[in-house]
Amino acid sequence: MRLIITTMAIIVAIWLIPFVLSDESGLKFGWPYSVFFTLATLFGGFLFYLLRMPPMGPFTSSRRAIGSVVLVFLVSIGIITLLANVSPQFAFEGAATAGATAEERGKAVFNDPKVGCFLCHTVQGAGGTRGPDLTHIATVAANRKPGMSAQDYLKESLENPGAYVVPSFDNIMPPVAKALSPEAFSDLMTYLKALK
């Protein structure tokens, strides 16, 4: 009984604390975390319940024994599979980009982990922060260097990133253009120029 009360009290606290904390506290967990901590607490409660369970005698028949072994095996596998299926899922994404527009292919290049643009740059709220936000880079690029077009500025940034480093950022970007095929480079340029 004490175990059930303790478990329930922890779960109630998990769901109540976010209401008490302000956003500024920097400790306010979102609801997916509340679900996570609830599941963890339920599991903890189950674990300590197992420690208190009275001993279980031998099975009366081989059939029952085998049935129990199969049940334990299937339930264990089933629970993990269920957990994996309710966890965040990305969509099936084919590598083949046939039929896609140049902008779509360019976006794929941008988000390709092997090229790594998104690791440092954010576009529309997603991506890293070590480099400037590129959400409106096409507009920004047109005015970045007097007399230089957006096309030329973006080309220069991909070929020789050190030529102009945005203030407050470090000169850490590699010359990405060297790692790209001419087609991929062109697609990436198209994508960046569409970010207005």
Partner: peptide, 15 residues
């Protein structure tokens, strides 16, 4: 079939 399989699918096949 050149794609990354999402977590749920990979776990189901593995299971």
């Amino acid at each position: 079939e050149s794609y990354l399989t999402p977590l749920g699918y990979a776990a189901t096949v593995s299971g």
